[in-house]
Design a protein around this nucleic acid. Structure first.
Length: 281
DNA sequence: ATGTCACTAAGCTAGTGA
């Protein structure tokens, strides 16, 4: 299986880019964030013509997550257990949920497409919302893996956290002043390891950015940041055979400000490409 | 020039979010 995650920053603006990438790169499962539309506005047809079915979760023009897959998707969920909601001046499990999580089972793998809240600034209520959201994600992930320790599970998406200093090439993002690099955010990110998931791309690609701001020539100057990740449970991580960050997708006409992150997986069985099984004798 | 972009509601610009 070839699995990708991509903050597309409006699927309606970039549907051709998205489908072309999926086909060209032979992606089986492609998780999107920031689709920025309701299901009735989602451009299903180009995906279906290319052989992908799509699960969509979107409530309005903000956020929005989706998963396109060549393989059947089951057990679709539009939030994780205990996911906090948010409304102005009102945060927590009783507040309305935003469209930031979509989970499916595909080929025996639980895939969560996640768009972690942007903290905006260190003293903003969205910053506390972000930390609570991450803690709830940790709890929900630990519970899901406790219920099925052998489950190949992946948390993929835009985490809006820069885990290490060398993941930050943007001089405007400064420790002590900016979100994405604050110790509480980094602790929340690494705390996901205690739930049983690890970054499966990092060991294969130690350096590299996944996002460059549209403003101030950040891409030509390569002042990017690494905030898009694939975190996998042990059964998932053990199946990883390769990874790639598709920097070229930041180039050309109307790019997203994020690029896709791809992981190759081999769960054994010898039949991961739809062809007849290999016979060894 | 913060060297930008996408969304909506209401109009051809302002407000919001990133």
């Amino acid at each position: 299986m070839r699995l990708a995650t991509w903050n597309i920053n409006s699927i309606r603006t970039r549907v051709s880019r998205a489908v072309d990438f999926a086909v060209r790169e032979d992606i089986d499962v492609l998780a999107f964030q920031e689709t920025k539309c309701k299901p009735e506005q989602f451009p299903y047809e180009p995906f279906e013509e290319a052989g992908y079915q799509v699960e969509v979760h979107g409530l309005n023009q903000w956020n929005g997550v989706a998963i396109a897959s060549r393989l059947p998707m089951t057990d679709v969920r539009t939030s994780f257990a205990g996911q906090p909601g948010f409304a102005k001046g009102h945060e927590g499990p009783d507040a309305p949920l935003e469209a930031r999580a979509l989970g499916v089972i595909v080929d025996g793998v639980r895939v969560w497409s996640l768009y972690v809240p942007n903290g905006r600034s260190l003293n903003d209520e969205h910053y506390h919302y972000k930390l609570h959201w991450l803690e709830a994600l940790r709890t929900a992930t630990a519970a899901e893996l406790a219920a099925d320790p052998n489950l190949p599970l992946a948390l993929v998406g835009d985490f809006n956290i820069i885990p290490f200093d060398h993941d930050n090439g943007d001089p405007a993002i400064v420790q002590g002043f900016s979100t994405h690099v604050s110790p509480p955010e980094r602790e929340a990110f690494f705390a996901l390891e205690s739930a049983g998931v690890t970054d499966v791309v990092r060991p294969l690609i130690p350096e590299g950015y996944t996002y460059w701001d549209y403003q101030r020539l950040k891409f030509p100057r390569n002042e990017g940041i690494r905030i898009d990740f694939v975190l996998g449970s042990k059964p998932f991580a053990d199946a990883v055979t390769g990874a790639s960050i598709h920097r070229d997708e930041r180039k050309g006409e109307q790019p997203s400000d994020h690029v896709p992150v791809v992981v190759d997986l081999d769960f054994g069985g010898g039949d991961d490409d739809g062809d007849l099984p290999m016979i060894f004798s």
